[in-house]
Design a protein around this nucleic acid. Structure first.
Lengths: 132, 132
DNA sequence: GCTTGACTTGAAGCGGGCTCCAGGTGTTTC
DNA sequence: GAAACACCTGGAGCCCGCTTCAAGTCAAGC
């Protein structure tokens, strides 16, 4: 697969794919005779994984580190695992923060609904507590 | 409350508080005779809200817009609500993405656990499928 | 054989969100 | 009254993660 196809398939821009390779997220992707990238199965799998991790908020740095460890062989397994656990916990924390935000927003939205319905009924009720 | 106290209370740096004010997230905080910020109840409530929204990933721009609408009076209520709904939905999407990442990570971590336990048992089993 | 289009590279630029700095003022403390 | 400290301002700098740009190469179609 050439870069454009991969880009389309995973909804990641060609520029980003090249960028990922540059910074070490994708090791050297093989080129054909005229220097054009030819992505293989493994590359695609990696891209898919990276995309998933990135959209979950895992920093590029952490992914690079993970990959480097991975390429250093079996004896890095414990460190790799620790890295994954750390990132998992960070994601969990962010999810928690977002859930709190979500709750706040939902409460606010509900109160807007109430206020607007009241307004429609011509009650012109004071809208209060909506800008905490 | 002076800036240092607020900073401590909400774990937001003084620089960030001044920055928020500069960009319009906190309207003009009152100053005492010698120009020092004196944060009131309402300011604190706002800061707490902003902190919550920020850590949920709501962009500063959106918060500014919301506040501006708020200050323009009751007739902006529908637009404000729409803005909140939009942000809520974005948060929800991000949570979904993060949950997927979380699941992937947990699966991977589990497999590391298995592999490492096997290794301990001296089974030296090939660790496979851990760098998708 | 010339245009078109997809690709290549290295380097610079950008947007968001702070964070830091220099230089200055005001209040306490010894 | 000098030093220490908390604050002020405007502006520059920084980190992350892309994104854009300029200049060039190659393969295919007309």
């Amino acid at each position: 697969m050439k870069i454009a196809e991969v880009s389309k398939k995973y909804e990641v821009s060609s520029d980003t794919l090249r960028y990922y390779e540059r910074v070490g997220l994708l090791r050297r992707v093989p080129r054909n005779a005229s220097g054009v990238r030819e992505y293989g199965e493994a590359d695609c799998a990696r891209i898919e994984f990276v995309k998933c991790m990135r959209s979950a908020g895992v920093p590029i740095e952490a992914l690079i580190e993970y990959l480097e460890l991975y390429e250093q062989g079996d004896e890095t397994a414990p460190r790799r695992k620790a890295l994954l656990v750390e990132q998992r916990d960070l994601i969990q924390q962010r999810i928690d923060a977002m859930r709190e935000g979500l709750n706040r927003l939902n409460a606010k939205i509900d109160s807007y609904e109430t206020v607007m319905m009241d307004a429609e009924r011509g009650m012109r009720q004071r809208e209060s507590g909506n800008a905490d």
